[in-house]
Amino acid sequence: MDRKSLGVAAFLALAAAGATTAYAQKDKALESIDAYREALQDGNPAELYEATGEELWKTPAGPKNASLEKCDLGLGAGVVQGAYAQLPRHFADTDRVQDLESRLLTCMETLQGKDPKPYIQASFKDPPKEEMNALSAYISGLSKGMPINVRPTHPKELAMVELGRRMFFFEGGPYDFSCATCHGQEGTRIRMQELPYIPSAKGAASGWTSWPAYRVSSGEMWSMQWRINDCFRQQRFPEPVYASDATIALSLYMAATASGATMKTPGIKR
């Protein structure tokens, strides 16, 4: 249950007096739908983050005082257009399967001479991660309208997609939850939140084509790493390390399952 519904649940627990709860919940739900509509009318606030991300991409920074413009996101040095739609993938220079965020860390280190550690360790609301969220918004925006093209062929990609599928079904923690507990059935909900059935092409696409996304309920720009991190929190797991293999494996599993669907990033979500 994400922060918002936790808040609602806590509020309801306090107010739990039979009939009034239904109305309280309804008001709350309508309120958030109104905020959502309002945000849509003004355009997706993610645009602001895209602009910030573009600046971060093009402005020289770090010990080497270099920009990220020569970063190879898989389509050659400096090609951003369409790059997000073919990630995660294997990169020869690192000999690793990388998602967008782990690849950005590589470029920050090699091109700009930055230490990736503070970026990995910062909380999602701290400045280093704000940079990553903005860069994700910008780069994913340049794949909007393009088909996802993630078809594992390299042996490391084939292994990673299987590791991701295995991670998806891996149960643990005090609630025995796995990703599949919440996303392994067609047409279910947690409270009022609809849950995509991720093992299907349609369900995987629902998630993969719309994140990174601006979240109206919290007023934040969430990268895909943040989305996955918060689902692990709800799963009662220990915290996944930022850009770790488990998060990349899950991403590859989702992207490969969704391959062919059209990118709508950056999305806008409740």
Binding site: V161, E162, L163, R165, R166, F170, G173, P238, D245, A246
Partner: peptide
């Protein structure tokens, strides 16, 4: 059950590098 590269040893190695303790949610939950 799982394709090449996702056997028990590879999966355990991935878990080992991918998670950390946070608050009350410790690694023993894996």
């Amino acid at each position: 059950a799982w394709g090449p590269g996702a056997d028990d040893a590879a999966f355990a190695a991935m878990l080992k590098t991918s998670f950390k303790d946070k608050g009350i949610a410790k690694l023993d939950r894996l």
